[in-house]
Design a protein around this nucleic acid. Sequence first.
DNA 1: CGCGAAACGTCAATGGCGTTGGCATAAGGT
DNA 2: ACCTTATGCCAACGCCATTGACGTTTCGCG
Lengths: 240, 240
Amino acid sequence: MPKPVVSESARRRRRPTKNGVVLSEDLIVRTALRMLREHGSAGLSVRRLGIALGADPSTLYRYFAGIDDLTLAIGDMLIGRAMDGWHGTGDWRADLRELGLRIHAAYLEHPQAAVLTASRISGKSHEIAADEAILGLLRGAGFPGRDAVRVYHAFIDMTLAFAALDAASLALPEQARRADEEMWQATYARLSPATHPNIAAVAPLLVADMNDSAYPAALDMLLASAAPWDCERNGSAGDE
Amino acid sequence: MPKPVVSESARRRRRPTKNGVVLSEDLIVRTALRMLREHGSAGLSVRRLGIALGADPSTLYRYFAGIDDLTLAIGDMLIGRAMDGWHGTGDWRADLRELGLRIHAAYLEHPQAAVLTASRISGKSHEIAADEAILGLLRGAGFPGRDAVRVYHAFIDMTLAFAALDAASLALPEQARRADEEMWQATYARLSPATHPNIAAVAPLLVADMNDSAYPAALDMLLASAAPWDCERNGSAGDE
DNA sequence: CGCGAAACGTCAATGGCGTTGGCATAAGGT
DNA sequence: ACCTTATGCCAACGCCATTGACGTTTCGCG
C-alpha cells in the first residue's frame, strides 16, 4: 500500500499545492459538494475535483482511500447540517416531525450529493448523534425499548428513503426532470376512463399532487399511528 | 444521427451476430438482469453486456439510445414481475399490504437492478397498471378523490423509496455489506451509556433489528392511520 | 540551527468506460 | 435475382479511477 491515508487529526504537515492551495478533508468535502451542485451527480470525478482544488487528482488518495470514502464523508456532513442547532421542545411527536423534516430538507438541499449518500450507513459522529436524539425522544415519551426501536427504525429508514427518492428526481438533468414532471400531464392525464377508470377519475388531482414530496404526509401518517401505550396495535405485523 | 433506434415491433430483419446469437430487446434486458445479479450493480457495462451477448458493444445502440434507456427498460420489467398474477381479495387494507410487499419483494429480488431503477418514473405500461390498481383499491374503499390521491402518493412513494433503500444495501459488494451489517455490533453496541444513554439502553435490540427491512412495519403504520372516514385527522398537516 | 526521515504533492501509465462514424453484408420486399 | 437498407462490426475518441515511482517540503529532534 503505497499511499496510506492519514487521519485528519494526525495530519501535521500541510504542503501547499502548485497553485498555493492548502488541502484538508473539510475543504475537499466542501469542494465536492459544490461540484455536485454545479455539475450534477455524475459530475463529481476525482480528476475534476483535483482540478477544482488546484491539485493533482492522485493527491486526493492521500486523504481518502477511494471515491467511496469520500462519499461517506459527504454524507456525514449532510447529517451534521441537518442536526445543526436543533433543540427539542418536549412534545415528542412534534419534535420527531421537526427532526424528520430537517433531515429530509438537509438532503434535498444537496440532491446530487444525497443521491450518492442517503442509503449508506457511515457510523460517523453526526449520524450517531441523530440516532441518539431520536431514541431519546421515543424513550422519553414512554415507549418501551422494543417499541422505541421499532418506531425508530421505521422513522429513520423512511426519512432517509424518501430523502433518497426525492433527491433522485431533483438531481436528474434539467431536461429529464422536466420530462418526469410532465409525465403526469402528458401520460396519466390522457388515459381513457374506459381502460383506466380510477386514474382518469382523479387525474387532475394527480397532476397537482405528484410533483410534490409525499414525505410530510407519510411522516404524519406514521406518527399518527405511533403511541407509547398499546403498541401491540401494530406489533403483530412487524416483520415479513 | 447515424444510429436510429428502431422500435422492437418495427424490427424486421434479424441478422445473427458473429457468434450466431439473434438479438432482441427482451434478450438484452434479460441478459442485463443476469449480469447485474452476477457482477454487482457496477458490473453492468455496455462492453461486458456486448461480450455476454456475443455481439459488439456498439450493436446495442441499435436497440437502446444509451445506457439510460436500457435502465428504464429494466425497471419496467421489474414492475411487471411484481404485478404478475396479482388479484385483489376485496379487503382493501390487506390488498394494499400485499401489493406493497409484492413490489418491494420484486425489486429486492434484483437489488443491483433496483438500485438503478427504483427512483425513476418510466410511464410505461406496467407502471400504469400498478397505479390504476392501487387507486382502484382506495376509491373502492370509499376514499374521496383527494384522500385517495394523498394515500396513494404516500403509499407508492414509500414503497419505492424503501425498495431503493433496501436494495442499495443488498447491492453493496459483499465486503462492504458485511461491514455495514456489523456496524451496529461494532460501533453502536459499544457506545458508552454516559455519552449515549439512549442508544446504550437499547443496543441489543438495535443489533437484532436494524439489519432487517423496516418496510413492513412502516407500511403497517401507514395503513393503520389511513381510513376512508374522518381523513381530516391527518389532513391538516399534508404539506410542508 | 541544521539534519534526516517521512509526509505529501506530482507525474506518467494502465486498463476500463460510453459513445460515435464509417463500413461491409446479409435480409426482405419486389 | 436485385436493390435497399437494416443491422452488426471495427477503430477510435475522450473520459474515468487508481497506482507506483519520484521529488520536494516540512517538521521533530538533536
